[in-house]
């Protein structure tokens, strides 16, 4: 099946849950939030929420910002270590 994750299309096997998707993407699952077809899916329901063809998934986290924020220029971990 094909699902759209943060605007990118991903080809996935059938029968996967939202939690399976997060694991496949190897994302840190702390302090993120997930929206499926414009509705928030609570963390406790990730494992029991099946994905289907053409689903739209948004996975968000927090970044530095104040107002609006030119976040594309936001610092990277690398720049701090340099």
């Amino acid at each position: 099946m094909q699902v759209y994750v943060n605007g990118e299309d991903k080809e996935l096997g059938d029968g996967l849950s939202l939690l399976d998707l997060l694991n496949i993407l190897n994302l840190p699952i702390q302090r993120i939030a997930v929206e499926l077809n414009r509705s928030v899916v609570r963390r406790a329901e990730w494992a029991s929420t099946p994905l289907k063809d053409d689903d739209r998934v948004e996975i968000v986290h927090f970044v530095g910002g104040g107002s609006f924020g030119r976040i594309e220029k936001k610092m990277s971990v690398e720049s701090q270590q340099r």
């Binding site: 605007g7 990118e8 190897n26 840190p28 948004e58 996975i59 968000v60 986290h61 927090f62 530095g64």
Partner: peptide
């Protein structure tokens, strides 16, 4: 803090 999409291409 602001809310943004998690980048999928890097950890």
């Amino acid at each position: 803090v602001a809310v943004r999409r998690v980048p999928l291409d890097r950890s």
